[in-house]
Simulated assay, not measured.
Amino acid sequence: MLADLATEAYPLARDWVLDLVETLRTNTRAAEALTTDKLAWKRNMVRTAILLAHPAKG
């Protein structure tokens, strides 16, 4: 479940990671979507937040 992320950093490519916890924390709509039972809206908002996120060189 997205509300119980096991790790913060997910590798994307060599030396590049995405911090999903920070991504969802800073995206108000995605964070709000995690608290609803509307699965399609939740999935779309979280996916959008991930697509808009800025990976970091790790």
Rank of each mutant, 00 (worst) to 15 (best):
G58A: 10
A56D: 04
L51S: 07
M45A: 15
K38C: 08
A3H: 07
G58S: 02
L39W: 13
D37A: 15
A3N: 10
L39E: 13
R47F: 10
A49W: 07
T28V: 13
M45W: 08
Y10R: 07
A56K: 13
R25T: 02
T23D: 05
A53Y: 07
A40V: 11
A33N: 11
N27G: 05
L18I: 08
A31R: 12
D19M: 02
L12E: 05
L20H: 06
M1C: 10
A56C: 09
N44K: 15
R29D: 12
I50G: 00
V21I: 13
A6P: 02
T48G: 14
A31T: 04
K42H: 12
R14F: 05
W41G: 12
P55M: 11
N44D: 15
W41V: 13
H54D: 13
E8R: 08
T28G: 10
L5T: 00
M45N: 02
A56Q: 13
T23I: 06
M1I: 03
A49G: 03
H54A: 15
R47D: 06
P11D: 05
E8M: 01
T28I: 12
L18F: 03
A9Q: 08
A9G: 03
P55W: 08
L51V: 06
R43C: 07
W41A: 15
L5S: 02
E22K: 09
P11H: 05
L52S: 09
D15F: 11
P11R: 08
A6M: 01
L2E: 00
A13L: 02
A13T: 00
T36D: 11
K38Y: 08
L18W: 01
A6S: 05
A33P: 11
A30L: 11
V21K: 13
A3D: 09
T7A: 11
E8W: 02
T28M: 12
P11V: 05
D37I: 11
T48I: 07
A40H: 10
R43T: 07
E22G: 05
R47I: 06
A40C: 08
P55V: 10
L2D: 06
R25C: 04
M1W: 00
A40N: 09
L34Q: 14
T35I: 10
V17R: 09
D4T: 07
Y10C: 04
A13D: 03
R25L: 00
R14D: 04
R47H: 06
A30H: 10
R25K: 09
L12I: 08
R29H: 11
T7C: 06
D37S: 15
G58I: 01
V46N: 02
L52D: 11
K42I: 00
A9L: 10
M1S: 12
P55R: 11
T28R: 15
M1D: 10
E32L: 14
L5H: 01
T26E: 09
L51E: 08
R25D: 07
R47N: 08
R29G: 03
Y10K: 02
D37F: 14
L39R: 14
T23E: 00
D15T: 11
L51I: 02
T48K: 15
Y10T: 03
D37Y: 13
E32Q: 15
E32H: 14
L20V: 05
V21S: 12
A6E: 04
E22M: 06
A9C: 07
P55C: 13
L12V: 04
D19L: 06
T36C: 12
A40Q: 07
K38L: 10
L52P: 00
M1Y: 04
L51G: 00
I50S: 07
D15N: 13
K57Y: 11
L12T: 01
A30V: 05
